[in-house]
Design a protein around this nucleic acid. Structure first.
Lengths: 132, 132
DNA sequence: ATGCACCTTGTAGCAACTACAAGGTCAAGC
DNA sequence: GCTTGACCTTGTAGTTGCTACAAGGTGCAT
């Protein structure tokens, strides 16, 4: 299959696929006589894996690790588990941060009853170290 | 005060402060005879405002808007409220996304009882469109 | 044969910093 | 008076993960 088809099948832009190849995240594709990239089902599987991992918030470096680990079938699963656990912890930290942020923003909105900016609680609170 | 002192006072790197000045986010500083930047309390307040807004997840463009609005004391508060509301909605969306992500990662960890990568559910699930 | 969608490479741009490099300034200590 | 070291200056390039061109080649239908 050509790059456009693979792009459509995985919801990835062709430019992104070429970028992954350049970065060594995807194996190089075969070429047709006219120098078009020619992909197999293995490439489809690989790209699906990469996109899914990226959607789950893994960095490119982590995706590389996941790929390297997944290529050694006899390795213990622990290393993979560790990466997933790390990512889970990171995601939980981000959720906590954002929830604190949400509370602050909500507090700002509720506190502002003024109708002129000169009296605006929001503007005032931005100038202080913390609102809460 | 010099840039290092302002940096320490606001928890901002000196390079970032210069960057803000270049970008027009902060007013230009006075200069000493030896061409060092010389900051006043007004600069301290402005930088505190900017850093606080950035911590709350506002983009540089939004910070510019907030600054512009806060400089017109007689303007109605509504425009500020709108920006804060927008940011709140965005943060809530991110929280929802991350919570879905957290659930998927948690599910992956729980499902993996194998000890070899060849049987690893996690690796398997990454190759599919969605785990859940 | 002509149009149009697709492909190629290479380069530059995005956000919001961060990290140098190469050099100037200032205060303290000997 | 001179050195050391911490600070400052400008300018440029790197970071992450793409995305957007530009300029040209290919494939297929009409």
């Amino acid at each position: 299959m050509r790059i456009g088809e693979l792009a459509k099948a995985t919801g990835t832009k062709a430019e992104t696929i070429r970028y992954y190849e350049r970065e060594g995240i995807l194996p190089t594709a075969d070429r047709t006589d006219s120098n078009y990239r020619d992909y197999s089902d293995n490439h489809l599987a690989a790209l699906t894996f990469v996109r899914r991992a990226r959607q789950l918030g893994f960095s490119m470096a982590q995706v590389r690790e996941l790929l390297a680990l997944s290529n050694h079938e006899d390795n213990p699963c622990q290393d993979i588990d560790r990466l997933v656990q790390l990512q889970l912890t990171e995601v939980e930290r981000k959720i906590a941060d954002l929830m604190a942020l949400r509370d602050e923003l909500g507090q700002m909105l509720r506190s502002c009853q003024a109708d002129k900016i000169g009296e605006c609680q929001i503007i005032g609170s931005l100038g202080r170290q913390s609102v809460m």
